[in-house]
Each structure stands twice: as structure tokens, then as C-alpha cells.
Nucleic acid binder design. Structure first.
Lengths: 163, 163
DNA sequence: CCTGAAACTGAAAATCGTTTTCAATACGAG
DNA sequence: CTCGTATTGAAAACGATTTTCAGTTTCAGG
């Protein structure tokens, strides 16, 4: 993700919130900034810690409430893993499939629209109407894989998981 | 799922647990019975309520511990939805993909092994090593769809979500 | 610019699902 | 049957999320 696209996203989010009657407060701005710029899925506490640097008085409650709003507008997407079940990333419209690194938590989106035929065949057989789908690949990114192989090495991907 | 396959599964689970040094207690038997016979993904509390009919003294803690064991042996699979994040169904070996009805919670498995190529191409481009994947389709089954269309009708699929 | 109504805020308390602790009990190998 | 050990349920601890509430901030309209 380039820096500019993060800033564009940030601007888009602010516009979208205001267009839906939400007010733009300092607290919300800080939360938006953190999430819009992150390459990783972050949970409420991580967002809280990062956003508080920009908005010192910020409360955790506000983070939850802002996440709720962003989710309602479809601007962020929830990421489930077997452990962390409530992390969020910026939603990339049209790219719903996730690639999650279990080492550093970074998230990438990818296409793979060949799922359409799969869903149709499932629907055809059973009368099931598919409304939503959910494809997530979990593994290790290049950097984390190298760090894991160099056991005990101090230079790794994990350590900077939240900067 | 036929009744006999549920009983077969139950027998398999009991054998597997004992083979791995777990003891077969009345409490565990009740939890196994509930989960092995269920067509739906159930969370800890639902299992607790159902299993307590067969084992009155049962504690919720034991449900959690039994789920942990079943999961460790790969006998049940966790189901994530946007709401319930910790429900479990019997794992069907070799069929990892889920079809979940948002109405009644019933779960079906399906094939779709064409994901292999998808994962390879993802890995090839990025150096990412995919260790696990997670495909879930959410929608409405035939029965729930009909029930939803007949708005206000009392005969539905939802009502018997947990019998 | 003001001004005021409504949205928003953070702190504290309540709540929910899950885990830990612990003394008593039940399993099952021998 | 007996014994060592895994397992049990109750209670307490715990972490994450939600609710409550009184004070504050935003922003549309004058």
C-alpha cells in the first residue's frame, strides 16, 4: 500500500462519515488515521494504543464506537483468526479475499473471482442462497518465514508488529 | 446427515479420545453426543444447555474443556460468523469448506478443491507460504428462505434452531 | 462570528464469554 | 478391588466489550 492511497482512503472515510451524519471529532480523526494507514489488522486495544499518541485523552470506548461506525459503513472489514477474532482492516472495495500473515499480522487482498462458479454450483444443488462469502488464507509472509528460520535471531518481522 | 452416520461419528470420537489417553466420563459422553448429532454449529452455552439434559450435574467449564480436546484431535471445527465467533461443528475429514445458514445455523460441507491452484498462485507471486485456508459461504437454506418470504408465518426454520 | 440542540466524549460500572484455581470425585489400568 | 491420576464442578479471576451518565464538543442556523 502506498502512502498516498492511505491518505486518499483517509479522506474518503472522513467524507463518508460526515455524509452519513457522523460528526468529525478529534478522537474519531485519530482512530481513522491509525486504521487507514495500517497494513495490518488491528484490534481495539492496538488501535487505542496507537491513536492515543495523537489524541492523548482518547478512551477505549470511543475506539469501539468508531469501529462500529466504520463497520456499519462498510469501510473496514473484520478479520477472524483462530486466536484473534476481532481485528479490523480497511476494506478494499471489490477485493474481499484476505491473505493474513500469522507472524506479523499484515494483510493483503487478492482477487480470485473464480469463486462465482463455485457458489453457483453450491446454490444450484441445494436451493441455498449464498449471500456472503468469506475466504481467508493464513500463513507466513516472506519476511516472517525468514525470521522464523533464523531461530533466535533478533531481527524479525514479528517485533515491529505494532510500531 | 443420516442418524446412523451421527452414531458412527460418535463411536469414532469415543475411540479417538480413549486412544489419546482421554478418559470417557459421563460429562464428556453427553457433550460428545450433543455435538456429534447436531447438524448445526453450536456454541459452548448451547452445548451446555443441551448436554445438561443428559448429564444434570454438568458444568459449563467441562464443556469448554471437552471442546478443547475435540479441537486438539481435529474432530470438530470452529465456525466464525460476524456475530457468533466461537461455534463448533463436527469436522468432516477432507471437506473443509462450509456452507452456513444464517437463519437456522445448519452447516453443510462441500468440496471445491480447485482452491489449490488459487493458493499456489498467491504463494508464487509473493513468497507467502499458505498454511491454512478458510472458506465459508453464508446464506439462507431452502427452508429458511421460504420461511422468510412468508413473513409473519409461524412455521419456520429459525424457531427450532436449538431443539 | 454566536448559540443551542443533539451528538459525542471519557470514566466507571455492568456484563459477557472464557480461563484459572482448587478440593473432591470418578476412571480404568493393574 | 485398589490406587494413582485425570477429571470434575463451584467459585473466583480474567479480558474484552457494552452500558450508563454527566460533562463537552460539533456544527447548522441565525
Amino acid at each position: 500500500m502506498t502512502a498516498s492511497s492511505a491518505e486518499e482512503r483517509l479522506a474518503r472515510w472522513r467524507t463518508a462519515l460526515q455524509a452519513h451524519g457522523y460528526r468529525l471529532t478529534a478522537a474519531r480523526r485519530a482512530v481513522l488515521r491509525v486504521l487507514a494507514r495500517s497494513e495490518r489488522a488491528l484490534d481495539a486495544t492496538q488501535i487505542f494504543d496507537l491513536a492515543r499518541r495523537q489524541a492523548p485523552g482518547l478512551g477505549l470506548v470511543t475506539v469501539y464506537r468508531t469501529l462500529e461506525a466504520l463497520q456499519a459503513l462498510g469501510l473496514v472489514q473484520r478479520v477472524h483468526c483462530n486466536t484473534h477474532c476481532a481485528s479490523y482492516v480497511a476494506a478494499e472495495p471489490g477485493h474481499q479475499h484476505l491473505l493474513v500473515c500469522r507472524g506479523c499480522g499484515r494483510v493483503w487482498y487478492f482477487g480470485g473471482d473464480d469463486l462465482g462458479s463455485l457458489m453457483q454450483s453450491v446454490a444450484g444443488e441445494s436451493g441455498f442462497v449464498v449471500e456472503d462469502h468469506w475466504l481467508q488464507l493464513v500463513g507466513l509472509c516472506e519476511a516472517c518465514r525468514q525470521a522464523e528460520q533464523a531461530e533466535g535471531s533478533r531481527s524479525g518481522c514479528k517485533e515491529e508488529a505494532v510500531k
